[in-house]
Design a protein around this nucleic acid. Structure first.
Lengths: 244, 244
DNA sequence: ACCTGAACACCGTTCAAGT
DNA sequence: ACCTGAACACCGTTCAAGT
């Protein structure tokens, strides 16, 4: 029920590591020696295949035909492992080094959305594992920050703009991947409401359902407005007084 | 480590229910008869007090000095219960019925941020329990949608604007409550990088750390830019071609 | 250096059985 | 109608013990 996220057919963002080390097919003996990298790759594959619901240290150990406790030799604990999985995945995002900051930012956001959408477990992982940034993620973040700075926004507002953009990105993917189970909740609820309580008229009218078709449009809408709001940045003349 | 979220000292958003039914103090016998409402209220209190980390059906049963299985008579399952907790909490947001849509939207966003921040477990809950909207949440959503529609944005863009605003809200609170464990990761990493690999200069320069002081400013920045971007809505002349 | 088995302290959910 | 105890199938993590 969280299977949309279309955005053109997704290129396989994740042919990075040594992955699929002949495991995940379920034979008995471990043909390959385990190491830190192997474990992370296997975890990544498993989460990709089964989603976060099926994930557990024990499930991974079963997948690798290895004792659970073995994993703890290669990895400090679950959070440590998941952190590395996140960092590896996020490293797939490449930040364009272009003077065209509008295109650069839009491209970054689209890449990130695709990655997070193709790999919805990632968002839940980031959420769950406390969002500590790995080294590769820091690199990507740094480069993106440079892109934002290039927009000509005031120097002391770069971080603010970064938060605006990334907050939108994360929130959007969150809504997109975790959309309500009942896409038709509007008709349902709107109809059953008695005459006494006012109906959910706006919900019925504008129906902000998270249908796959609409989401691409909505993302583009958001990105466009955000880019515009950066562009017209410091020249805002009619601001009431909320500068702080 | 997720203890910021200042935004003026928070008024107690949550003196709603019958709560604190003399439980949470830990005596033996259940003086009050249990019912659906009671259970939800107790769950809400418990999560508020101990955060989501300590939450479990079994923990709640211990708190109520009752057998775990008893809970399942009053409530379908954990997800059902958490859904009701969320809906109750979100119902505390009141949407101003004002023609001043800018003020109305800003007020709504601030209320929501406060609530979610004061109650960080909520965001994780929403995340975890699949974001199905309860009846009270639908009401709030509906009213907010009306406010957005009043901004004079094109009718077929109301839902898009709604997503833009709410995505920002959720993403922001997510970043705010789940900020990295290492607020000083910049100096740390920036310093230790060798000369070979380029330093994380932008991170060091703009330091987008989630310090409590900066977050209020950042939220205000975001809200302001978003409101502006709605205002200048349909009059956008120089859009490249991303209308769809 | 790498792996195992058993143990510890947890989970959510079900279900026959009690009053 | 409401509550219990025991059971089932899980968790993450530790640790002495094996090679």
């Amino acid at each position: 029920m969280l299977e949309h996220c279309s955005t053109v057919n997704l290129p396989p963002t994740h042919t990075i590591g040594v992955h699929h080390m002949k495991k995940l097919s379920g034979q008995r003996q471990s043909a390959v020696r385990l190491n830190r990298e192997n474990v992370v790759a296997a975890a990544s594959d498993l989460i990709r295949r089964d989603g976060i619901e099926g994930w557990s240290m024990r499930a991974l150990s079963r997948e690798l035909s290895v004792s659970v406790s073995t994993l703890y030799w290669h990895v400090r604990n679950e959070q440590d492992l998941l952190g590395m999985v996140i960092d590896e995945a996020l490293a797939a995002i490449v930040v364009a080094d272009t003077p065209d900051w509008r295109a650069g930012i839009a491209d970054f956001l689209l890449q990130a959305r695709r990655l997070l959408c193709e790999y919805p477990a990632l968002v839940r992982l980031i959420w769950r594992s406390g969002w500590q940034l790995g080294p590769r993620t820091l690199r990507v973040t740094n480069d993106f920050l440079g892109l934002v700075a290039r927009s000509g926004i005031a120097e002391d507002e770069v971080a603010d703009a970064y938060y605006l953009l990334v907050a939108f990105l994360f929130g959007f993917v969150l809504m997109e991947t975790q959309s309500p189970d009942t896409p038709d909740f509007v008709a349902e609820r709107g109809a059953s409401s008695s005459a006494a309580v006012p109906a959910l008229d706006h919900l019925a009218r504008y129906s902000p359902a998270a249908d796959a078709a609409g989401m691409d449009r909505r993302f583009a809408f958001g990105v466009e407005r955000l880019l515009n709001s950066l562009e017209r940045g410091s020249a805002a003349a009619e601001r009431p007084g909320a500068v702080g």
